[in-house]
Design a protein around this nucleic acid. Structure first.
Length: 493
RNA sequence: GCUCCCGUAGUGUAGCCCGGCCAAUCAUUUCGGCCUCUCGAGCCGAAGACCCGGGUUCAAAUCCCGGCGGGAGCACCA
């Protein structure tokens, strides 16, 4: 117990802290995590969420969960809750929660103001025209001569007109070339139905919401950097408070695409089982694989808020997870690709084995007789005349090697320097363990990224609850799933 | 192509804003050794880095200029 306590403390010390926030005062920091409810959260979201959450905690501030649901065609009702579940699983708690879509009336008010003050205009150019004019840095006729007002705009049809900011068509920053602020979308909204037809774009609601909700330190990922200028310009025009906007690089994992854009095709083409496939960096996938929330937290925070693009190895996460799991996971014997061994002289009996080598978790009982199974990989190494050890049981002298191995009991005492092998007896459970690997190899989907290993596990695995993570000794950490039968998913060695 | 951002060991990261205490932090990785009835964990040790070239300065990873390399944006998507 005390030993554990010391270990625990040792690890805590190593935990890195986020660097101090500029312009931050204790008690006055407000952060926000703004997912769009259009899919399941992945580890990239976890990074953003943890950074926001941790900074709020670090400064005794407030952390807001905000659903950026302003594109009714994309959002789906089920994801509001799914995302909240995933955040809760991560151990993230929020002080406030709201939907951006609930604030549309306020957005409309500000839009009208922008229009009336001549800082925005209703543009009826086609999308292609807008694009071309942007490229050619040319103002369109509507910018200065449009007579259309807000009330005209809201009566128009989808695609007929948009509201644009009067930025600077000559700006080097393409984001400033009169970005679209509002557009019309007829598609019903999962929450509001047909109540609204005019929807703000990211440039508008992002800046406005951050400011109005009191966020002091909004974080976004680096690809938005060019939009900073729009963000502050807009707030200036609206006379709204300007937060300390910050950016960090996106999380990238070697061989494991994080973005929805790359994951979705794998699911659509049936290459993976779904959004919770253990090969995927979705929170649901990681969870199924046996990666614990604390590990995800430590991992993503170790990336920090640097703007340098980084490609991290998944093994970093594995290493963190392994260390956390090691002190908590019960041990069992699992024999992959079992080979039968007849041990002459081994009496039928019941032995007690510890659930954990150093932490007291009690003991389990295992029946043995003279029929034993050991892993093929170990069996292949055996030579006639050699003595090997059945771990926690006894020594066996190899007499004959064939389809089965014949051996003889060779004493109970531990002999130094011989191989110790995990085993099961006649009483065992057949099961399979899924071994997920990196889904991508050399930029292409690896068809062999999910290996299935069949084997025998000691009967006690039947007591393991669904979702529990255990260690199969000398094999790896495995999360147990119990649906029709019992199945294991290997997290890592 | 244009614009912006980034460049510290194999990998990630601290330090850079406010130059000296940096012969550079921590983690991972690899390799030794110890411990352990797991190929896990733990303990000890070792290996390994400031993209290049100029400049400023008594002094540069840190400031300035140029080059090279990588990334992002150029959507009525976020």
């Amino acid at each position: 117990m005390e030993r554990l306590g010391i270990k625990e403390e040792g690890r805590k010390k190593e935990k890195r802290k986020l660097p101090p926030l500029p312009h931050a005062k204790k008690g006055e920091v407000v952060t926000r995590f703004p997912p769009e409810p259009n899919g399941y959260l992945h580890i990239g979201h976890a990074k953003a969420a943890f950074v926001d959450y941790e900074y709020a905690r670090m400064y005794d501030g407030i952390f807001i969960l905000r659903f950026d649901d302003t594109n009714p065609a994309n959002e789906r009702k089920e994801f509001y809750d799914a995302q909240k579940e995933d955040l809760k699983w991560l151990g993230i708690e929020w002080d406030k929660e709201y939907r951006t879509s609930d604030n549309l009336p306020k957005h409309y008010e500000l839009a009208k103001k922008l229009l009336e003050e001549g800082n925005a205009y209703i543009c009826t150019c086609s999308e292609e025209e807008i694009r071309r004019n942007r490229r050619e840095m040319r103002e369109c006729i509507h910018r200065n001569e449009s007579e259309l007002e807000w009330n005209d705009f809201i009566k128009m049809k989808e695609g007929e007109a948009v509201m644009r900011l009067k930025g600077d068509m000559k700006s080097n920053n393409t984001a400033m070339r009169d970005p679209v602020l509002f557009r019309i979308i007829e598609h019903p909204h999962p929450i509001h139905g047909k109540r609204f037809r005019v929807w703000p774009t990211y440039d508008f609601y992002g800046a406005v919401e951050d400011s109005l909700s009191g966020v002091t330190h909004p974080f976004r990922s680096k690809e938005y950097e060019l939009r900073d200028e729009v963000y502050f310009y807009l707030l200036d025009l609206l006379g709204l408070r300007k937060p300390h906007l910050m950016e960090f690089s996106r999380l990238e994992i070697k061989g494991m695409p994080v973005s929805k854009r790359k994951i979705k095709p794998l699911i659509d083409e049936g290459k993976v089982m779904g959004w919770d496939d253990p090969r995927l960096p979705t929170l649901r996938g990681l969870r199924r694989r046996g990666i614990v929330p604390e590990a995800i937290k430590e991992f993503v925070l170790s990336q920090g808020i640097s703007k340098a693009e980084a490609v991290v190895a998944f093994e970093n996460l594995e290493a963190i997870n392994r260390k956390i799991l090691d002190g908590k996971a019960r041990r069992y014997f699992f024999v992959p690709q079992p080979v039968k061994v007849i041990v002459r002289g081994l009496e039928e009996k019941e032995v007690e084995l510890k659930y954990h080598p150093s932490v007291d978790m009690g003991k389990r009982k295992v029946k043995v007789g003279n029929v034993i199974y050991i892993p093929k990989s170990d069996a292949e190494k055996l030579q006639v005349g050699e003595i090997f050890r059945l771990k926690d049981l006894c020594n066996v002298m190899v007499e004959k090697i064939g389809n089965e191995i014949m051996g003889e009991f060779a004493g109970d005492e531990l002999i130094d320097g011989i191989d110790k092998v995990q085993w099961v007896g006649e009483e065992h459970v057949e099961m399979e363990v899924l071994i997920p690997r990196l889904p991508f190899k050399n930029g292409e989907f690896d068809e062999k990224s999910l290996e299935i290993v069949r084997g025998y596990a000691e009967k006690n695995v039947e007591e393991i609850k669904h979702g529990e993570i255990v260690q199969f000794e000398r094999f790896g950490f495995v999360r147990i799933e119990r649906n029709e039968g019992i199945k294991g998913i290997m997290a890592h060695r």
